[in-house]
Design a protein around this nucleic acid. Sequence first.
DNA 1: CTAGGGTTAG
Length: 620
Amino acid sequence: MIRRQVQHTNVLITPRDHLQPTQVLIPPRNHQQIPEFNLQLKEQECLSSLKRCKNMEEFKQAHAQILKWGLFWNSFCASNLVATCALSVWGSMAYACSIFCQICEPGTFQFNTMMRGHVKDMNYEEAVLVYADMLERGIEPDNFTFPALLKAGALLRALDEGMQIHGQILKLGLHDDLYVQNSLINLYGKCKKIELSYVVFETMDQKSVSSWSAIIAANASSGLWSKCLTLFGDMISEGFGEPEESILVNVVCACAHLGALQLGKCAHGSLLRNISSLNVIVQTSLINMYAKCGAIQEAVSLFKKMPDKNQLSYSAAISGLAMHGQGREALKLFSDMLREGLEPDAVIYVGVLSACSHCGLVDEGLQFFEQMKSEYGVEPTIQHYGCMVDLLGRAGLLIEAYDLIKNMPMKPNDVVWRSLLSACKVHQNLEIGETAANELLQSNSKNPGDYLLLSYMYARTGRWEDVSQVRTELADKGISQAPGFSSVEVQRKIYRFFSQDVKWPHHDGISDMIHQMEWQLKFEGYVPDTSQVLLNVQEDEKRQRLRGHSQKLAIAFALLNTSRGSPIRVTRNLRMCSDCHTYTKYISLIYEREITVRDRNRFHHFRDGTCSCNDFWLLT
DNA sequence: CTAGGGTTAG
C-alpha cells in the first residue's frame, strides 16, 4: 500500500505522463473506500489478459485496461506490458518503445526487456545503444542483461566492444553466471577468437549442454572441424548423453568437411533417436554430409524421401551428384525441381553449371547459361562465368574460354584465371597458361596452388630454370604451400598422412606394404609417372618421392588395417596427381577393393581398375 | 515477483 501511495505521488508530479489515467487515480480521501483485494484482483486480471493476447488488437485493449485502472504505475504491470509487446511474435518494437518512454523510472528489468526486443528484431546496434543509455542513467546491469547484449555483440562481430563488456562483467562479478559465460563463448566464437572462447570455457566450473554447444559451434565457425569432433567426444564422456539437434548439426557439418562417414552416420542415428521429425535444414545438412563423405546413394535416397524440399535441398543434391560425376542425374533433378514449380536461383545455377563441367556436357552447359537469364531472369555472376570457363577449358576449348573471360561484363577474378590456368595445364597450352598465370601473379595471389600449376607446366617442358624462378618468387612473397595430406577412417578414427611422412608409428609396416604394392602393380603393367615430381633430380629420387605421396601411404595403411573386400575411403586436402590416380586404379583391381577418394573438388570412385571420373580430370 | 545462452544448408 505504501508503495502504491508513493507511486501515486510520482504520477502527480511527473510532467511527461500524458497517458496518466487521472480519473482512476484515487484521491487520498477515497483511498480507504477501495478495498485492497480489488486492486490486486484487477492486477491479476490485467496480467492474465496480457498473457492471453494473440495479436496487437487484443494487446491494445489490455494496455487500455491497465491504464484505466492506474496499474501502469505499478512497475510490475508496466514491465509485463512492455515485455509482452516487445517479445511476442505479433508484437511491435516501435509500440514497445513508446510504452517504455512513459515509464518514469525504468529499472534493470525494463532495460533488459528492451534489449532483448531489439535483438529479437535483429536491430543489434539499437540493443547496444539501449545498454549505453542504461549505463548513462546509472542503472546497474545484472546477469540477465548480458546474454542479450552479448548476443547483439556476437552478431555484430563487435570484438572490441565485446571485450569491453567482458571487462564490465568481471567488474560486476557476474562472470560466474552460466548464461553469461555461454554468451561469452559464443561472442568470441563468432568473432573468430577461438582462444578467447577457450579461456572462458576452461575456467567454467559448471558446464551445461549449451556450453558444449557454444564451444563446438565456435570451433565450427573457425573451420576447426576435427576439434569439433574431439569436443563432441569429450562431451559424451562427461556424461552429456544423447545430445541435441543443434550440436548434432554441427557434428554432421564437421563430418562432411572431414569426410568422416562413420561418425556422420552415428550422428544421423542419434538425430533419428532423439528428434521426432527432422526439419529441412537438418535433412539438407545430412544430404550434404553423405554426398561429401562419398556415400552418394545414401544422399540421394535421403533426398528422395524428403517430404518438403526447397531450393537448398535440391542444391545440395545436385552439387552432390555433380561431385560424383553423375551429371546427367543432377540435371534430371534440376528438371524435377522446375516441374515442382520451385524458382531456380543464382546458386542453383552454379550447381547445374558445375554438374555440366564435371561431366563435360558442353552443349547443355551453354544452353543453361543462356537460359538462366532469358527464362528465369537470373543475372549471371562471376561465379557462373567461372563455371563456364571451367566447362570450356576442361573440354579443351581454351580459346573460347579465354574469349569468354575477355568479354565478361565484370573484372575477372582469381578463380576465373585459375580455372583457365588449370585447363591449360591439362591440355598443355603453355601460351595461354602463361597469360593466365601472369594475371594471377599480378593479382598478388596468395594461393600456392597457382604457382604449383605454373611449375608443372614448366617442368613438363623441361624449363627447370623457370620452375626454380617460380619457387624463388613463392619464397620472396612468403607463401608456403599447405602440406598435402590424405586421411582414412579406420574403426571410427581418422588417420592423417602427410607426404613423405616417416614419423608415423607404424611406418615400418606401411613401407613394407608400399613395396609389396608397387611390386604387384608393376607386374600388372604400372609404370611410375615421374613427370609429376617437380624437382630436377635423378629418376630414382623422383620414384622415391612418388612412393611417399600421402595417398599411397593412406591406402597402404587402410589395406593393412581393414578387412578384406571392405571399401576404403580417402579424403585429401589437395587434388591428386595423375600418378596416384593411375596407381589407385591398379590397386582397386589387384586388391579387389572399392576405393573412394575425395579430392579438393570431387570424388573418384575406383573399382576394377577404372575410375568414375573417366580420367576426365587427368588428361596429362 | 517476471526473463536469459546456441540456430545449423547450397
